[in-house]
């Protein structure tokens, strides 16, 4: 079966087109749906296997990034969304989508209790928007379908509010159940230890992304769709030059594509 992905749009979300491109490149069928259209026809969620909340600036980040869009979803679309994530489906929230998914309480969903806000994704320590390439480590112990293959990723972040915050109990619970899926690291592979710019926002425990308990819902601040091809990389010209000297061809795909391929693989198996 070719799985179908539904990508939300509207009210300032703005990464829907490239996110769709990524999923289609990985072999899924996809469509972009304005949130108002989905509210009018929530049954559409029954026909798809993947829900993607892409990056953007929903409601201009007013009242806290992702908050207003999440409130809208909660008030107008909560039951269909809850039913969707409880099925054997995949959900991803990227950047603004991550903030929305966290505000909706689709992550961390401890004890499968979706709908409770337990983590905040809030203002960077620098109080400055940060658009930069960073290094990430994927939690080898996570069994999230999104993260199969583990390892590290070099992809960009671009956000003003990417700092995960939560109380100690929640943090412990996330760590214990391997829900801390993706963390910021230094280029040499060592932990970022909160140090700017490796950890670009001061995120607790260097957290860049978390999953729900099942691992089927992934919320991450970095943008895999902006690092899916080698030509998108910040070191592309260095890699390209080196490959030319060695008479090699550069691979077309880069680290970010892995997530989308994993989604396709999950439903292919």
């Amino acid at each position: 079966m070719t799985a179908s992905v539904l990508i939300l749009s509207g009210y300032g979300l703005n990464c829907e087109e490239e996110t769709l491109y990524a999923f289609e490149y990985a072999g899924l069928k996809g469509r972009i749906r304005h949130i108002n259209d989905l509210i009018e026809n929530p049954k559409e969620l029954d026909d798809v296997q993947v829900l993607a909340v892409p990056g953007g600036f929903s409601y201009g980040d007013d009242t806290g990034s992702g908050n207003a869009f999440a409130q809208k979803m909660k008030l107008a679309l909560w039951e269909p969304v809850r039913r969707f994530v409880e099925r054997d489906t995949l959900t991803i929230g990227i950047c603004n989508g991550c903030q929305i998914v966290a505000n909706l309480g689709l992550v961390p969903g401890i004890n499968k209790k979706y709908g409770e806000r337990l983590v905040a994704v809030t203002y960077n320590m620098t109080a400055r928007y940060q658009c930069r390439w960073i290094d990430l480590s994927i939690n080898d112990n996570s069994d999230s379908p999104w993260l199969q293959g583990g390892g590290t990723m070099h992809i960009p972040v671009a956000h003003g509010e990417g700092r995960f915050m939560m109380d100690e109990t929640t943090l412990k619970s996330l760590k214990d159940s391997n829900q801390v899926a993706i963390s910021y690291i230094k280029p040499d592979g060592s932990t970022a230890g909160g140090e700017f710019p490796y950890n670009p926002n001061g995120s607790t425990a260097d957290i860049a992304g978390i999953t729900d308990e099942s691992g089927r819902v992934l919320a991450l601040m970095p943008h895999p769709e902006r690092g899916m091809f080698t030509w998108q990389r910040d070191d592309y010209h260095e890699l390209k030059d080196q490959a030319a000297r060695e008479g090699k061809e550069l691979p077309e795909e880069s680290d970010g594509m892995r997530l989308f391929r994993n989604a396709a693989r999950y439903f292919a198996s």
Binding site: N14, C15, E17, E18, Y21, G55, R128, Y129, Q130, C131, R132, P156, A158, H223, E225, R226, M228, W231, Q232, D234, D235, Y236, H237, E238
Partner: peptide, 20 residues
């Protein structure tokens, strides 16, 4: 350069900050 998102729409090839 770091405050202005130059990566959105995913088409950035040659970026505002170049080289290591």
């Amino acid at each position: 350069a770091t405050q202005y998102d130059h990566e959105v729409q995913a088409g950035s090839v040659l970026k505002p900050l170049q080289g290591p």
